[in-house]
C-alpha cells in the first residue's frame, strides 16, 4: 500500500520523540500496522526511507518481534494465553474450544477476516487466569463459554468490553495507540479490579496497615 502524507507526518512525529532517530523504529512499525493491519514490503520501505536504513535492516527487526505480522490478522486478533499459569487453569481448553468453533488454528484468520487466533505467552495477568486478549486488551477470568461468546459478539459487530480497559476496538486502532497517539480512552475500565485490590481489601478487613513514618 502507498502511505499518505499524513502517515509520513506521524512517522516524523514519532522520530522527533527520540534523541537518536533509529529508536523510533518499533513504534513506527506499530504505526505501519495501524494503517495496513500487518507489515508489508511497502511498510518496511517507509520505515527505511524515513530513518535512512536499508530495507534489510528494517526487515531484520520487523521479523524479530512477534507482534509484527507478515500477513493480515483479523479485525479482532484474539490471543489465548497457554503459558502454564493460564494453560493449566483452563487456557488449553479455551484454546481448543475456540479452534473448533472457528475452524482455524494458530496464526490463522477466519474467512470473513473478522477473527484471528494466536497462542500467546504470559500476559502479566496470571492472577486473572485464564486470560484472553482481544487486540491486546485484557479479557480476564475466561471460561470456554465466555470465550465463545466474546468471539461471536465481535464477529457480529457487537460491543465487547475489556475487563480492565475500554470497549474492544479494531486491531488497527490499537496499533495506533501503541505507536503513541492518544485515543482518549485512559479512563475506561476503572481504577483497579477486585483481584488487584484483594490484598488491600483483606488488610482493611483485618485492620492491618503500614506503619506511619515517625
Amino acid at each position: 500500500m502507498t502511505f499518505t502524507q499524513e502517515t509520513k507526518v506521524k512517522a516524523r512525529e514519532i522520530i522527533s520523540r527520540y534523541p537518536v532517530a533509529r529508536s523510533a523504529l518499533l513504534p513506527m512499525l506499530h504505526l505501519v500496522q495501524s494503517e495496513e493491519g500487518f507489515v508489508s514490503a511497502d511498510g518496511i520501505a517507509l520505515c527505511a526511507e524515513e530513518l535512512g536504513l536499508t530495507t534489510a535492516e528494517v526487515a531484520a527487526v520487523a521479523t524479530f518481534y512477534t507482534m509484527y505480522h507478515r500477513k493480515p490478522v483479523g479485525e479482532y486478533h484474539i490471543g489465548v494465553c497457554i503459558n502454564p499459569g493460564c494453560g493449566i487453569l483452563g487456557g488449553d481448553e479455551i484454546w481448543s474450544t475456540l479452534c473448533n468453533r472457528l475452524g482455524i488454528g494458530n496464526d490463522e484468520v477466519t474467512d470473513d477476516g473478522k477473527i484471528s487466533l494466536e497462542r500467546i505467552e504470559c500476559q502479566a495477568a496470571c492472577t486473572h487466569a485464564p486470560v484472553l486478549t482481544a487486540n491486546w486488551e485484557f479479557l480476564d477470568n475466561m471460561t470456554p463459554a465466555k470465550a465463545v461468546d466474546v468471539v461471536e459478539k465481535l464477529t457480529r459487530g457487537e460491543e465487547v468490553l475489556s475487563t480492565r480497559g475500554p470497549r474492544i476496538r479494531t486491531f488497527k486502532e490499537n496499533e495506533e495507540t501503541l505507536a503513541g497517539f492518544d485515543d482518549g480512552l485512559v479512563d475506561a475500565g476503572g481504577n483497579a479490579d477486585e483481584l488487584m485490590l484483594a490484598g488491600l481489601k483483606r488488610a482493611k478487613e483485618l485492620g492491618m496497615s503500614a506503619p506511619e513514618a515517625k
Binding site: V186, G190, N191, A192, M196, L197, G199, L200, K201, R202, A203, L206, M208, S209, A210, P211, K214
Partner: peptide
Amino acid sequence: MTIAQGSLTPVLTAHWDEADSYT
C-alpha cells in the same frame, strides 16, 4: 515500630481502591 509477622502493609497499593487512583 515493629510490624507483626504475617501482616499486610499496603504502601504502593494503599489508594488503589479510589475511583481516580491513576490520576
